[in-house]
Design a protein around this nucleic acid. Structure first.
Length: 573
RNA sequence: GCCCCCGUAGCUCAGCGGAUAGAGCACCGGCCUCCGGAGCCGGUGGCGCAGGUUCGAGUCCUGCCGGGGGCGCCA
């Protein structure tokens, strides 16, 4: 089907283009009509014409009679467009018949999306939560519009801490260590290793020697390292399953995966004359970056001790993803503090020719999760909160709330619904705030059944499904055009037709909060419809069918929208 | 000290250079012969400060104030 807003925009663009090549109609949703085109104002200014006069000319030339009921020039030169009911009804009917609910496909890109990235032998905490949830939602949407999406979980499975972790593994004993790691007590394991490293000089020496063995590929050391990795990955899988994200073992491409390419990266950079030796380290100095003294800031590729820095790994990844995997777009869903690092990496990779024209790379950064005190979320004891504990508590709280609000629900259903609500609430809280901002974590708010929350949207969906259950009504065929006589019916219809725009604009900014805002608006608009337009008790059969169709389409959009966010929508709750 | 991000209602957040800046929570006042009241209607209340660009600025630019983060061998 053709998208409603796109149809209007295309039609207007042709007329604007005839006046001045490339002129933008600036079509926006409007408070004064269904849409408004603001482009005549700027265009009139450039041409030295009267804005209202030009707007009237454009409105007439566009001949929108088949789409619009009224086209009016208003204010200083806005073109207000009110769609005709028959056009809306036709669009809605096409949307209902469309498996993709009117969401347009995109020219397929080969997208690699790098997200989650926990560290081996370290607990997953709330800091990993946001990136995992946002990255996952973007994967779902990118796939939905037709891109080839490759997920990569760039886990921290290499580097100097592994000397200490392996030595600790030896001290604890393999069996006991595996047991400790398998129950998910990664923090204790890591802390004990750290404590030994800090307090015991002998252990410290052993750790350093072990790092050398690891880097040289010593077989026994590799075997021990592999135990740490395998046990951690098993644990990550549990967390991902609980969280309900797409990531699996197949998506793991840890830092160690690039070890064999690091020497080539250095060789290539050197060959291009981009490497400069500075204090014993080999660095790229991308222009425009300075340190606190105003001196050029280095991207350290090879450390003075001969080891590779993480910049080397990130550069190797870019080179490999573009060169071998044919990525046309690479997204890094990583926290905001690493912004400068990525800017420098992208600059260096561009200098090296590893990011040719036509390949887009972006740091999709996000803000931190804060406690009520506006500091990084911690437990009362001052520890980082484990992600699993957070999820368990959310499900517990959701179950309590459901038991209170719907005591008739059987225990099994209540349990499964509690998981959908609890996990959904946490994910939605992460997704519904502009991703670049820090956000304040608040149990009460995210689990509330009012306001812009997952439970509210899930409830709106369940309530619609219950209409069909209570009324013993079948979902109507998409054939007949809906009747849109009441204002509330028309409002709902227009809201439904905005789904494509919501998904498109979310992907344009990689900001899932756009889709969240849309779904919340749709749900509240439906409530208005539901208050004003009896569905099962509609005055005529024809109207009943029409309203059932509107209700069903709303439920489908809500469920699909939540699905794109990685959130489940139960039929009852 | 330099660089980046952020300052919108009491709180948490939307606002794509366009018309009278919107929600939710909280607070106040209404609504029930209601298909799920987990509701609906109304009210109180706001763009950190000062300049500038523009026909038009919460949005763009400059400075200041406030908060967070980064700034050479951790990732």
């Amino acid at each position: 089907m053709d998208d409603t807003k796109t149809v209007l925009e295309t039609r207007l663009r042709a007329v604007f283009d005839a006046v001045e090549t490339g002129a933008d109609p600036v079509l926006r949703p409007s408070d004064h009509a269904d849409f408004q085109a603001n482009g005549a104002l700027a265009l009139a200014k450039r041409l030295g014409r009267q804005p209202r006069e030009l707007a009237a000319e454009i409105a007439a030339a566009a001949s929108l009679d088949d789409l619009c009921e009224t086209v009016e020039v208003s204010g200083p030169g806005f073109i207000n467009l009110t769609l005709s009911t028959s056009f809306i009804a036709n669009q809605l009917s096409a949307m209902a018949a469309d498996d993709r609910l009117g969401v347009l496909g995109s020219e397929p890109e080969n997208v690699i999306i790098d997200y989650s990235s926990p560290n081996v032998a370290k607990e997953m905490h709330v800091g990993h939560l946001r990136g995992t949830v946002i990255g996952d939602a973007l994967c779902r949407m990118l796939t939905y519009v037709g891109h080839h999406v490759r997920r990569e979980n760039h886990i921290g499975d290499w580097g100097t801490p592994f000397g200490m972790l392996i030595e600790h593994l030896i001290d604890v004993g393999e069996e006991k260590a595996v047991l400790e790691l398998s129950v998910g007590d990664l923090d204790t394991f890591y802390r004990q290793a750290r404590a030994s490293f800090d307090s015991d000089p002998t252990f410290r020496d052993r750790s350093r020697a072990r790092v050398v063995l690891l880097q040289s590929g010593d077989a026994e050391t590799m075997r021990l390292w592999q135990i740490l990795v395998a046990e951690s990955v098993r644990y990550f899988d549990e967390v991902y399953a609980k969280l309900g994200v797409l990531l699996t073992d197949d998506d793991i491409v840890g830092e160690s995966a690039y070890n064999s390419m690091l020497a080539d990266v250095v060789r290539d950079l050197d060959g291009l004359g981009l490497l400069v030796e500075s204090d014993g380290a080999r660095c790229v100095f991308p222009p425009g970056f300075t340190n606190r003294n105003g001196d050029p800031l280095p991207l350290i590729v090879r450390k003075s001790d001969g080891g590779y820095g993480y910049a080397a790994t990130d550069l190797a990844a870019i080179r490999d993803r573009v060169g071998r995997l044919g990525a046309t777009e690479i997204l890094y869903v990583v926290g905001a503090p690493q912004a400068q690092h990525f800017e420098m990496c992208f600059a260096a990779a561009t200098m090296a020719g590893w990011l040719p024209d036509g390949v887009r790379v972006a740091h999709v950064s996000f803000g931190s999760v804060q406690g009520a005190d506006h500091k990084i979320l911690k437990t009362r004891a001052g520890d980082r909160i484990r992600l699993v504990d957070l999820l368990d508590e959310a499900v517990e709280r959701a179950e309590t709330a459901i038991a209170e609000k719907n005591p008739d629900l059987d225990a099994a259903t209540r349990g499964s619904v509690a998981k959908m609500l609890g996990v959904g609430a946490i994910k939605y809280a992460d997704l519904s705030t502009d991703r670049t901002r820090d956000y304040v974590f608040d149990w009460e708010r995210m689990l509330a059944f009012e306001g812009n929350t997952a439970p509210y949207l899930q409830y709106a969906h369940a309530r619609i499904r219950s209409i069909f259950r209570r009324g013993n009504a079948a979902v109507p065929d998409p054939g007949p055009l809906p009747l849109l006589t009441e204002p509330a019916e028309r409002d709902l219809a227009l809201a439904l037709l905005g789904f494509n725009d919501a998904v498109t604009s979310t992907l344009g900014s990689w900001n899932p909060s756009r889709l969240c805002a849309y779904l919340f608006d749709l749900a509240t608009t439906f409530t208005g419809f539901y208050e004003n337009c009896p569905v099962l008790k509609a005055p005529t059969d024809e109207l009943r069918t029409s309203r059932l169709a509107l209700s069903d389409l709303t439920a489908r959009v809500l469920a699909q929208g939540l699905e794109l966010l990685g959130i489940s929508a139960p039929d009852q709750m």
